[in-house]
């Protein structure tokens, strides 16, 4: 099976003297569904940030979708990010853009045709059950609805890789379940690799998944 992520002797940190992730090696198969768990401050989010290039490896190597992220330049990184969908705990929606335009962002960046953009947004709005909210602004939506918008945005350009950082951390049970369903759907229907950083793996998971646990800067696969 193709590997979408390969990390070797990877160390990550916010300063050169102190690493949060220390000398880890792991790989993730293309099309798999992966959970990364760990205590607060264990380095889960740090690892996730490194996967979309927001944090560069201090030592070792990290290859994501064929791109070596150690010393990667901006244009190569931008190209990689066009194939990654990211979901954040705090949604990170653009406040001054409507729901519709927020979802359109990756398509806009990808330079898709206007008609394709419109069709895809309409499809996704139905998919996340927000068709009636298309022209609203993020602040007019509830937390759950905002996260659904963020999910739709992450799915809009059929990404190879979806990275989600505690996507249900701020949501109620109903909204959380909707988000899990959407992530499962993306993995099953779009064949996207999904990596979710979370405190708890939902019991309702209907698909096969891998579980990595981070402790004291080291990563272990739990079977």
């Amino acid at each position: 099976m193709d590997k979408v992520i390969v990390a070797q002797n990877l160390s990550l940190g916010y300063s050169k003297d102190e690493f949060i992730i220390k000398d880890i090696s792991f790989s993730i198969d293309s099309g798999s569904f992966v959970f990364i768990t760990g205590a607060s401050g264990s380095g889960k989010s740090t690892l996730l940030k490194s996967l979309y290039g927001a944090l560069k490896p201090e030592t070792g190597s990290l290859v994501v979708a064929g791109v070596e992220l150690k010393g990667v330049n901006k244009s190569k990184l931008n190209l990689l990010r066009k194939h990654i969908g990211i979901v954040f705990q705090d949604y990170k929606l653009i406040k001054e853009w409507t729901v519709e335009k927020n979802i359109m962002l990756p398509l806009l960046v990808g330079g898709y045709d206007k008609k394709v953009q419109q069709d895809q947004v309409e499809k996704l709005l139905s998919h996340v059950r927000l068709k009636h909210q298309a022209l609203k602004y993020p602040k007019e939506l509830s937390g759950g609805e905002q996260q659904r918008v963020a999910m739709a945005r992450a799915l809009s350009n059929n990404p190879v890789l979806i990275l989600a950082d505690e996507p249900t951390g701020n949501l109620d049970d109903y909204s959380s379940q909707l988000i899990w369903n959407l992530l499962e759907g993306a993995n099953k229907d779009l064949d996207s690799t999904v990596i979710v950083v979370t405190h708890h793996i939902p019991e309702s998971m209907r698909i096969e998944y891998k579980h990595f646990h981070i402790e004291f800067g080291k990563i272990h696969e739990r079977i």
Binding site: Y52, A54, K74, S75, L77, N78, L79, L80, R81, K82, I84, I86, K92, L93, I94, K95, E96, L105, P106, L108, V109, G110, R153
Partner: peptide, 16 residues
């Protein structure tokens, strides 16, 4: 800054 950062996360070049 916030908008530019978010757009950057999805691969938008600086000009965009």
């Amino acid at each position: 800054t916030e908008r530019m950062s978010i757009m950057g996360l999805f691969g938008a070049p600086t000009w965009l």
